[in-house]
Amino acid sequence: MSQTAPVVRHTLFEDAQALLVAPLFVAFAILLFRQAGLLTGGTVGIAFLLHYVGDWPIGPLLFAINLPFYYLGVRALGWTFTLKTFIAVSLLAVYTEVLPGLITLGEVNRVFAAVMAGFMAGVGLLMLIRHKASLGGIGILAIHLQNSRGWRAGKLQMAADLGILAAAFFVRDPASIALSILGAVALNLVIAVNHKAGRYMGI
């Protein structure tokens, strides 16, 4: 007779390290994507589109784009989730602007950049999901639908990402779009494989 493992609540320290570290993984992924002339999905992808169109800085764009989604976050997932998400998005915006001054990247293989950046962003997002947070925007909607209707967050996120990447045909060349899709697949593969109900008991 199998017994259900006890649910272990995350400590404040554990939540804090996730909120500090996860956006750094994603910021490094953004650096790789930008260095290779690629983009990704979600609100980060929307920021990339605006960056390529008007050369606006990605960090402030990320912060501004996510502002309308916090209302949905409060309504659908509560104040704690929304506050954690606000902190994560704010740190990602800061990290995205600070990181290029700390690391200088030379020539980067574009295929490697797409896959590695996708994996890193996926790991960062997975950390946030497991600590009841996200990077806002479409992620809030995806997590809400997974919790309320059982739809897989990874598949929902992938569908939205592909829509954003389709819009990128207006600002990037087909080769860059193809590699960006590869990066999105790598990102969502990490989430789809590792984020399944009942396999992770921390809250």
Rank of each mutant, 00 (worst) to 15 (best):
G78K: 07
L39T: 11
A186Q: 04
I58L: 08
G139H: 14
K196R: 15
R130D: 01
R110C: 00
A47R: 00
L165D: 05
G118I: 00
V7Y: 08
I87A: 11
E97N: 01
A114H: 05
A27T: 02
V94M: 06
L77W: 06
L179N: 09
P100L: 02
L72H: 06
A36K: 00
T85R: 02
V74L: 15
F28A: 13
G137L: 07
K84A: 02
I129L: 14
A5K: 12
A22E: 04
G78I: 04
F33M: 11
F170Q: 13
P68R: 01
A175I: 12
F13E: 03
I87G: 04
A153K: 02
R152Y: 04
A178T: 08
P68L: 04
F63Q: 09
T4F: 10
D55Y: 13
Y52E: 05
L32T: 10
K132A: 08
G78S: 09
I46Q: 06
I30L: 15
L145G: 02
A133L: 09
L187P: 08
V89F: 00
M116S: 11
P60C: 11
K196E: 09
H131S: 12
A184C: 01
I103A: 04
A142Y: 01
A76Q: 14
I203E: 15
L141I: 15
G124W: 08
H10V: 10
I177K: 08
A178G: 11
L20F: 04
M158K: 01
E97G: 12
W151L: 15
T82E: 05
K84M: 01
G101V: 03
T85V: 09
I181M: 13
G137M: 01
L126D: 09
A113D: 05
L77E: 15
R75T: 13
L125T: 11
L91S: 10
Y200G: 07
A64W: 02
A167E: 06
V94I: 12
F48T: 08
V98Q: 02
L187F: 15
T40M: 06
V108N: 03
G37Q: 01
K196I: 10
F119Q: 08
A159P: 01
I65S: 00
I30Q: 11
F170R: 06
G78Y: 02
A175H: 05
G106I: 05
I87P: 00
A133F: 01
S176Q: 02
P68I: 07
A29S: 15
K84S: 04
A18G: 00
N188S: 09
T43K: 03
A192W: 14
L92Q: 03
Q35F: 12
L12S: 14
S2H: 12
I58K: 05
H51R: 11
G198E: 10
M201T: 14
N147M: 11
F25Y: 13
G139V: 09
V89T: 04
G202W: 00
L24K: 05
F33G: 06
V53N: 00
L61F: 04
A29Q: 13
S148Y: 07
R75L: 12
G136A: 03
V123L: 14
L182V: 12
A133Q: 06
P174G: 00
L20P: 08
F33A: 08
F48H: 12
A114L: 07
L24V: 10
M116F: 15
I191Y: 07
F81C: 03
L135S: 01
A5F: 09
F28L: 15
L165Y: 03
